[in-house]
């Protein structure tokens, strides 16, 4: 049963949790990678781990898939405790890696059938599912072509199809849309949302893209190996009240100084200007424009706070990566 996207975040030990992770900790030499990481994923929801590179989200992915053993922590899957990398867990996981995991010398269909055999899906069932999944991935006409001849976007779609051939209970994805353009990004998410609606698939993913995080039902914000906040994207966005105004111009320091002196607002440097949060931004903009002599401003932009702004407010530093406006 899909959980409505607006469901309030409640006790993580909710009865309908498919995966529960408690107190995950890992040190690498002297460096703390994860500390007391706790979250739970409900059946049928899309749950995201949002954080910048190095925050520990990929480490969490590696622990979930059995590629790393944590120093401490407990996991429960479908009501029963499991050790990281436990076969019972691996049997029911579908995994999409950040790196390619298809054999490029084999055809699309062969890749799907080999993965099906790995999970002991009966041959006739596997053939039928491979056909359906290739159709769904828009690869039906390339089914018997070797992967080497396919474009990057096609290969990413094949990765997703491959991870679903054994009908996993939990699909776990590491930065699933890295390197995809805007159109492919939206197509991928349309597919994932459709899958979730159709099969009640539960999805756990890591990401550093705010627009990808916005697609999730619930999010855990991870910073330096700790969950800073866990809630729906809407509730998290409420944490930052007001509007985000970005002022672009040549002399960013000068712009910041004027904003501070005339309006008493603390602005921070962004790509080509400064940015700050304020209440009733639409009323401020005319005064802001008047405050600068002609030519000093190139553009003024007002938007609602994004999850990147939320992350900045809660952790004090940027999400980074390929952030888009």
């Amino acid at each position: 049963m899909p959980v409505p996207a607006t469901a309030p975040a409640s006790d993580p030990a909710a009865a309908d949790a498919l995966l529960e992770v408690r107190g995950l900790a890992l040190r690498f030499r002297e460096r703390r990678v994860l500390e007391d990481l706790t979250f739970s994923v409900r059946r049928g929801e899309i749950f995201g781990l949002l954080g910048p590179n190095g925050s520990g989200k990929s480490t969490t992915f590696r622990i979930m898939t059995g590629l790393l053993v944590p120093d401490a922590g407990r996991m429960t899957f479908d009501g029963a405790p499991v050790a990281p990398g436990d076969r019972r867990l691996r049997r029911r996981l579908g995994v999409v890696f950040q790196n390619p995991s298809v054999d490029i010398t084999l055809t699309c269909r062969e890749n799907l059938l080999l993965t099906a055999a790995l999970h002991r899906v009966p041959r006739s069932v596997a053939r039928e599912r491979a056909g359906t999944l290739l159709e769904l991935a828009d690869l039906a006409d390339r089914a018997d072509e070797v992967v080497k001849n396919l474009s990057g976007g096609m290969r990413r779609r094949l990765e997703l199809a491959r991870s679903l051939i054994h009908r996993p209970s939990l699909l776990i994805m590491d930065e699933p849309t890295t390197g995809l353009d805007e159109i492919s990004f939206h197509r991928t998410w349309d597919r994932l949302q459709a899958l979730r609606r159709r099969d009640g698939l539960t999805i756990l993913l890591t990401t550093h893209r705010p627009e990808e995080a916005a697609q999730c039902d619930r999010l855990a914000l991870i910073d330096r190996g700790v969950v800073i906040a866990c809630d729906t994207p809407e509730n998290l966005q409420r944490a930052v009240s007001g509007d985000v105004i970005t002022v672009s111009g040549e002399d960013a320091d000068g712009l910041a100084a004027v904003v501070r002196e005339r309006f008493g607002l603390e602005a921070r440097r962004v790509d080509d200007g400064v940015s700050f949060v304020c209440e009733r931004g639409h009323e401020l903009i005319p005064r802001l424009v008047e405050a600068f002599p002609a030519g000093r401003l190139r553009a003024v932009n007002l938007k609602r706070p994004s999850l990147a702004d939320v992350f900045l407010k809660l952790t004090g530093h940027e999400l980074g990566g390929e952030e888009r406006a």
């Binding site: 898939t65 059995g66 590629l67 076969r87 691996r90 049997r91 996981l93 995994v95 890696f97 790196n99 390619p100 995991s101 298809v102 054999d103 890749n111 080999l114 993965t115 790995l118 999970h119 002991r120 491959r162 991870s163």
Partner: peptide, 15 residues
């Protein structure tokens, strides 16, 4: 093992 099919075998159900 890092960027190929073996990744899916490693996280698959076999030992």
């Amino acid at each position: 093992r890092h960027a190929g099919f073996l990744q899916s075998v490693v996280v698959g159900p076999g030992s």
